[in-house]
Design a protein around this nucleic acid. Structure first.
Length: 231
DNA sequence: GCGACAG
DNA sequence: ATCTTGTCGC
């Protein structure tokens, strides 16, 4: 399999990355409701790293949104070209994720990312960035609250609490997807509303805390990394 | 200056 | 993210 390299002009340091975020953030669309829940296709993307070898594996798994069965899977192997910096995660992941998405036959439909969208220091997290570059509706689902705070939420599946920035703005939502488990943290990426993002996330997590899209993509990119790196 | 900080 | 054993539970 071909090794994905960052496109020419891709940021190589923090200063360039911040400038790119500052420019692209204006292209995020937030006034579209997004696709209806439970219909069409929904795609999960995730990556796994081998920092010692500078290798990153990305996976895209397309699910039927109604049945949550796998429609198609794709992977890509890339070279790590950017360090992990909180707030700049997209620059580490996106080139390889894009390659995986582009090799799909089926239209990705709605894309779910492992990380944040609007809930980001500059309101332009991974999910928003990927959405703007592809034009696809996207959602960010993260497993911890990052730099944000959230209030108490009920113990039942579907219970929510606003995810708040320093200035009190609701940048996302803590969402309990299973009774008695820690919530996940949902934010709009591109071309979806927060309400819609939460509804999709809940629908995609009928059995576990993390949505099926993310679980499937996580398992697949680990497999791809092991095959590319291991024996 | 120090600590915290998606994956 | 990743490094890692056993262990509790469906």
């Amino acid at each position: 399999m071909k090794i994905v390299e960052a496109p020419s002009g891709w940021p190589v340091n923090e200063e360039e990355a911040l400038a790119v975020q500052d420019e692209l953030r204006a292209r995020v669309v937030l006034d579209e409701p997004g696709p209806p829940v439970g219909t069409g296709l929904v795609t999960g993307v995730d990556v796994a790293y081998d920092d010692d070898r500078d290798v990153v594996a990305a996976a895209a798994v397309v699910l039927d949104a109604e049945t949550l069965t796998v429609v198609e899977e794709a992977t890509a192997i890339g070279r790590i070209t950017f360090p992990y910096v909180p707030g700049l995660l997209a620059f580490r992941e996106i080139p390889t994720v894009l390659a995986a998405l582009e090799s799909l036959t089926a239209g990705p439909g709605l894309v779910l990312c492992d990380g944040y969208g609007l809930a980001h220091p500059r309101r332009f997290g991974l999910a928003s960035h990927l959405g703007v570059l592809t034009g696809l509706p996207s959602i960010g689902v993260a497993k911890n609250p990052f730099v944000f705070t959230y209030g108490e939420l009920g113990p039942e599946r579907g219970d929510v609490a606003p995810l708040l920035a320093d200035d009190g703005e609701e940048v996302g939502r803590a969402l309990r997807t299973q009774q008695g488990v820690k919530p996940v943290f949902v934010s709009a990426g591109h071309r979806v509303t927060l309400d819609s993002a939460c509804a999709h996330t809940l629908r995609l997590a009928p059995e576990f805390r993390v949505p099926q899209t993310t679980r499937r993509a996580d398992a697949l990119c680990r497999r791809a990394l092991a095959e590319a790196t291991g024996v």
